[in-house]
């Protein structure tokens, strides 16, 4: 009766992992520079294309491909920051202008890829990364890419939390995101921190794109088509909360897979309407509970006191 469930859950977990990788960068961007970056999805696209192109040279070499995707997306992120966002933020542009500018930057990148892809003959293709089953659970195959995604997602989460709690740069970044003026007055070099932020944000997005690429046909609009869902993840998580992004990606993964499977099998809702679930949720969240489902700072502290962890 519930034979569809194991496969569905596994797919939900996978999608959660992918979205986590891609969306953390956006959460960072919103948190540190208060910028709703509509060009964020393009980092995904660049990562996917890096994977596509590189896999022609070193097929199936997942570690190299992931590293390269991180690098290309990080470089792109720095470029966009310096060319577009730095001058606008310096001018104290309103949030709408920043949204518009990021949209424009996204379109610029996207159509550059369209043109380059057309000229290079790789407009829509499949990367040469073989998806092979590694282990079986409940009759479902867990592939190499799947396991890599989970490992990378969990590792990134752990590394990032360690980064923010224990490294100097991480702590400085938290300071900048909570109070930029104060951080600057304390002598923190804002520009340096912001650059590091963009490297991480872009890079992780690129890795997310590369992890996604073996499963899809890579097109220039790959990221753009996922843009609103990436924002959904971040919005569900309350926009600036790290834990919130984890929760948000789980909500996204499960609602688009397990919940949708449920609706399809028992109510006949066609799969073409999948995106309506997160989109309707976005509107509801923004209007009703703009803080999202993320764990607030005070709730976090209360939780930790409960467990007996020493809170500073």
């Amino acid at each position: 009766m519930l034979s569809w469930l194991p496969g569905s859950i596994l797919r939900s977990v996978f999608e959660s992992g992918i979205f986590l990788m891609i969306s953390i960068g956006l959460t960072l961007t919103l948190s540190v520079v208060k910028l709703p970056n509509f060009a964020h999805a393009e980092f995904l696209t660049i990562g996917a294309y890096t994977s596509l192109v590189l896999s022609q040279v070193v097929p199936n070499n997942i570690p190299i491909i992931l590293l390269a995707s991180f690098l290309t997306a990080a470089i792109l992120a720095l470029a966009v920051h310096n060319a577009v966002f730095k001058p606008l933020i310096a001018r104290k542009s309103s949030a709408y202008i920043l949204v518009l500018a990021s949209f424009a930057a996204a379109q610029f990148i996207r159509y550059t890829v369209f043109i380059a892809g057309s000229l290079g003959g790789v407009l829509s293709a499949h990367p040469l990364i073989a998806v092979t089953p590694v282990v079986y659970i409940a009759g479902q195959a867990l592939t190499n890419v799947y396991l890599t995604t989970l490992i990378v997602a969990i590792a990134s989460t752990i590394l990032l939390s360690l980064f923010f709690r224990y490294t100097l740069i991480g702590k400085c970044m938290r300071a900048v995101s909570s109070n930029t003026v104060l951080a600057q007055l304390s002598g923190i070099r804002i520009e340096y921190i912001v650059s590091v932020m963009w490297i991480i944000a872009g890079g992780l997005g690129g890795v997310g794109g590369a992890l996604l690429s073996p499963y899809v046909t890579v097109t220039p609009a790959l990221g753009f088509n996922l843009l609103l869902e990436i924002f959904a993840v971040v919005i569900f998580g309350g926009l600036t909360s790290f834990v919130g992004t984890i929760i948000g990606s789980l909500i996204m993964g499960f609602s688009e897979n397990t919940l949708m499977d449920f609706l399809n099998i028992y109510f006949g809702v066609p799969y073409t309407y999948t995106q309506l679930i997160p989109f309707s949720l976005i509107i509801i969240v923004l209007l009703v509970k703009p803080t999202g489902f993320g764990v607030s700072y005070s709730a976090n502290r209360a939780l930790r006191r409960l467990i007996g962890v020493r809170t500073r």
Partner: peptide
């Protein structure tokens, strides 16, 4: 009237437009 941050309105309208597209396409 209800949104907290400035750009939330932009987000709501963008998403509403997307919902419209999905419904009328399918």
């Amino acid at each position: 009237l209800r949104v907290k941050e400035e750009w939330y309105l932009a987000m709501v309208l963008l998403v509403a437009a997307q919902i419209f597209t999905i419904i009328f396409s399918y």
